[in-house]
Design a protein around this nucleic acid. Structure first.
Lengths: 332, 332
DNA sequence: TTGTAAGCGTTATCAC
DNA sequence: GTGATAACGCTTACAA
């Protein structure tokens, strides 16, 4: 068994309380001599604080529990965790995530997390959505990340999809593009909001969309759904008035758009500019030419979530939309 | 404060021990009546086991700690965690990861993990490498995932790079390819081992490599290093005898190879077959044509790691190489 | 400045 | 079958 405070106390010939004070109680007054002697003995014994013991005393462990709907799989998810982790660490907290993975129900996973008596609990979604949390669980979740609670009873942090679409569309317009098509993600909240921003920017400029089409046939976007991108691009590029810009639902769609444009001999960005959402770096940086895309604020959502969870003040539930960031590469 | 066993005991008019037995002690003999009554009261109170309290009693928390060198960022990393998580869950354990993120030293992160008194600790690396663990820490790490300990003092699980390269090269040969070039990851253990397997397969077939070249100039592979892929492909395809197959260091390199081949007008796989390593699905499935690649055994490493950590028997440290899996798509 | 003792929620030991 | 009681390692009033 690992060394405990009492082991140190015995060796140092002092009481446990003195040892505890010397090691943890920052400002407690005691002779520098005993303090350093105690620290040295602790070092020699390889003492490591037992957070479980402290936790039973305090009623909580220095953990932020994350209930993730499928989070761990996604590359963005890791960004949320990183954001959380960074902010948590400054408060001497650790983050631990449990995922639902489709099959498991929220209640049971939430209970599993609660067994560890985390200081706070966040619910994180893989893609931007609305989640209906069972009434009994609402009080247990401190914050929703990348999703909002159906009845607004929990503070939520979501990407500002509409503004992002508005911004990148404006960017395309500023680059002189006038015939802009949108190959969107159908059936997704993000897609819906992005389309709204897209249309708003075009409306303001007084021009009509060169087309708004779905990337796949199924309502919910899935990597397994047969892609319609090739067909759409062929159709668009065979029209009498070719588009001079394509906005893509996300970077994976953009990747297919690149292939399809190449097949019809269109050059990027000379003939057709391409803009997108996500900034999935593995893809965006390696496309040829590198892709201009709106980066999701995943890291920022994670960081802010931790800050809110760890702040003492209780504020009424609110929904916060975080801005994307335009990552300008060479496709526009 | 959350309900405790004593709250239940009081309401039920029994002792704490009886409650504990009713809720957790599976086989303890007691009247079915009291048991179900206790369970119902627990339910009503919303009782959730306090693992911190159990942990201080038992000396450990049902956690598998993962010290990750940069793991959380990588898309593969998540696969390791998934593997761990799945296996851990069957043992009622949770996984929590802390990452070094470059700046932090192993000792301090390891201590941070140990404060939670996890049942077992794994060290996981983002890419296949050898890690020199400080002497004092060796005893704390139960297993190395995707890396091996410099002096073989800890059981390690690594991908069988050499066999993977051997297998895919054989696959290319079986497809009738005879002039095969390898655009490798320089300065990486994985690259070195893959090259060995590549050469072995060609040797056995009695043919010479059509070239082995680095994907980037810097010794350690980095996404920021300027890529040499375009230059190499141009060089190879301008030679008198063009290669009829390119083996790529990983899928990201393959992505660049696709662009470069297209630029010189070579068709995949008709003119040039392309094989790769990693199976980074976001990329491999969306390349045109979809990429044939050797999938890293990350999930399997995670799963096996948990199984080994949680098995009671102590076996001497050993190094285990796990097989890749050939994912056959349309690029060969 | 240091020591004593109580208590956190759990499990284990022992007696009834 | 069941019920006190001690113990796990830590923090914290309260005394000295």
């Amino acid at each position: 068994m690992a060394a405990s405070l009492s082991d140190i106390a015995e060796l140092a010939g002092v009481s446990i309380k003195t040892v505890s004070g010397a090691l943890h109680g920052g400002s407690a007054r005691m002779s520098e001599a005993t303090r350093s002697r105690i620290k040295q003995i602790a070092e020699e014994l390889g003492y490591v604080t037992n957070l479980a013991a402290r936790g039973v005393r305090q009623g909580w462990l220095p953990l932020i529990g994350v209930v993730a709907d499928e989070l761990i799989t996604s590359p963005f998810a890791t960004e949320i965790i990183r954001g959380l982790d960074g902010a948590a660490r400054t408060a001497e907290m650790a983050v631990f995530a449990m995922n639902l993975n489709g099959t498991r129900d929220v209640a049971s996973v939430l209970e599993e997390v609660r067994r560890f008596r985390p200081r706070a609990i966040a619910y994180a979604a893989m893609y931007h959505k609305t989640v209906a949390l069972p009434e009994a669980l609402v009080g247990n979740v401190g914050i929703m990340i990348n999703c909002s609670e159906a009845n607004g009873r929990v503070t939520s942090l979501v990407p500002d999809e509409e503004s992002a679409a508005f911004e990148i569309t404006r960017h395309l317009l500023a680059a002189g593009r006038r015939r802009i098509a949108f190959i969107n993600l159908p059936g997704l909240l993000a897609g819906e909001l992005r389309e709204r921003g897209f249309r708003k920017a075009l409306d303001e400029a007084g021009i009509a969309p060169a087309g708004v089409v779905p990337a796949v046939r199924r309502p919910i976007y899935s990597d397994r759904a047969p892609s319609l991108v090739g067909t759409h691009i062929a159709g668009l590029m065979n029209a009498s008035e070719r588009p001079d810009a394509i906005l893509c639902g996300n970077d994976r769609v953009a990747m297919e758009v690149y292939s399809a444009l190449r097949r019809v001999g269109a050059r990027i960005p000379d003939d057709v500019a391409v803009g997108s959402f996500d900034n999935q770096v593995e893809i965006a940086t390696r496309l040829d030419p590198p892709l201009t895309t709106m980066a999701l604020p995943h890291r920022a959502m994670g960081r802010l979530a931790a800050e809110i969870l760890l702040s003492e003040e209780t504020v009424p539930p609110q929904a916060r939309r975080l801005p994307f960031q335009l990552i300008s590469r060479s496709s526009i």
